[in-house]
Nucleic acid binder design. Structure first.
Lengths: 217, 217
DNA sequence: ATTTTAAATACCGCATGACGGTATGTATAA
DNA sequence: TTATACATACCGTCATGCGGTATTTAAAAT
């Protein structure tokens, strides 16, 4: 294949294919050769020119998945018109509303047999999302009086861990009814921390989405 | 090597070595050959006689890890002298007390780069421990009046998920202080559900253990 | 009760093919 | 003319398959 004037296009094409295959078949059950085959006229040398290893591709894939979400989180985190609690509420609303627009959601991956990808998401949630997005919001909430806790770091972790992992329909595929119960228990948990941020509207939207997701599989 | 009259011994020897290597180096970075080498005079064929694949060994390893814990859970679950809430409290106390006796704890594995093993534990927690051990206890608690919830399944999952995964020092290695904060937030979460089952004694013991674990690494 | 025989099981160790990764060559853009 | 974007050929490692052997078990035959 002729050399591409925009190497970024090639990189994106590789990530597109790798992304889809990692989702469908799982990282460890996807070979470099399969990626090459589905790339159409690109060679192994091309891939190893742009990525230093297979794992490096996975990192890039997860970065692309979390990237868009993180930009949304940053935008809400940096708003000046909301107090801490309101920001948390906004985040959950936005997250739910944006789910069905998400490319990841569309491919409906099942992460059950995809330990590498799951762990990437899991550790990203606790080592990046919690300290860099949720924690600042909780600290603001403590300052502005909308959130009460003596342990902002642990609380940030717990909330986002439960929301991003336990309630993630891509990680644990329950029935729509089971998931709805999870959401309500999550709502109760948040209320226990004085955070009444999950309202009826979000719950209903979540339930709809779970049904859509289930039907796509 | 001479044929062993008790094949179970051989199987156990394989699991011993595999277990240690999977913990120390991670599943994917442990080769079958390494297991053979450390086995002393056993061959590749022997392993594939007892296990149908490398992954099959991992399953057996995780079963052995969770087995002892599950027997403890079953024993408490089936007691007749405790109500639901008391059983939950007993479980947490026992889990904490038994931690340092645990062989797994002694080898001090870091599951950060061991996605396969981590996922095994994670799904075992939600698909086996939650429905078969915690859920019956919560249901009993509803009946005997010691626990109030309309969503026993989801609550069982949430509790054990947070306790076994988020608070697991083998999965997320925080400082002793960070972990102590996690435990307190967990205590608050449980109180939010009307479950005051984590007392000072357990908290202090947990903190000690975290220090011991950290020093072993 | 002892021996014979048949079958199942434990184990060996080499062959194989797949896979991740590398070294080197080549053409094109800058 | 140099750096970059690829192609091609090749390497080492690894999980796994498989043909074969030794040993145990159990039942049949003596």
């Amino acid at each position: 294949m002729a050399r591409n004037k925009n190497p970024e296009e090639t990189v994106n094409k590789i990530l597109d294919v790798a992304s889809r295959l990692f989702m469908e078949k799982g990282y460890e059950y996807t070979s470099i050769q399969e990626i090459i085959d589905q790339l159409g006229g690109l060679s192994k040398g091309a891939i190893y020119h742009h990525f230093k290893s297979k794992e490096d591709i996975l990192v890039a894939v997860t970065d692309r998945i979390t990237g868009e979400s993180n930009r949304m989180l940053a935008k809400i985190r940096d708003r000046k018109d909301l107090n801490g609690k309101e920001k948390l509420k906004t985040i959950f609303k936005e997250s739910v509303l944006r789910l069905e627009l998400n490319e990841v959601f569309a491919t409906a991956p099942n992460l059950h047999n995809n330990s590498k990808l799951l762990c990437s998401i899991l550790y990203d949630t606790l080592e990046d999302v919690a300290p860099n997005y949720i924690l600042p919001i909780i600290k603001q909430g403590i300052t502005d009086g909308s959130i009460q806790t003596d342990y902002p770091e642990a609380l940030a972790e717990l909330i986002i861990f439960v929301a991003n992992v336990w309630m993630n329909p891509m990680i644990f595929d329950n029935t729509a009814a089971e998931n709805y119960n999870k959401f309500i228990v999550f709502q109760q948990m948040m209320r226990g921390f004085g955070l009444d941020i999950v309202d009826e509207e979000i719950l209903n939207r979540l339930q709809e989405l779970t049904s859509i997701y289930q039907s796509k599989k």
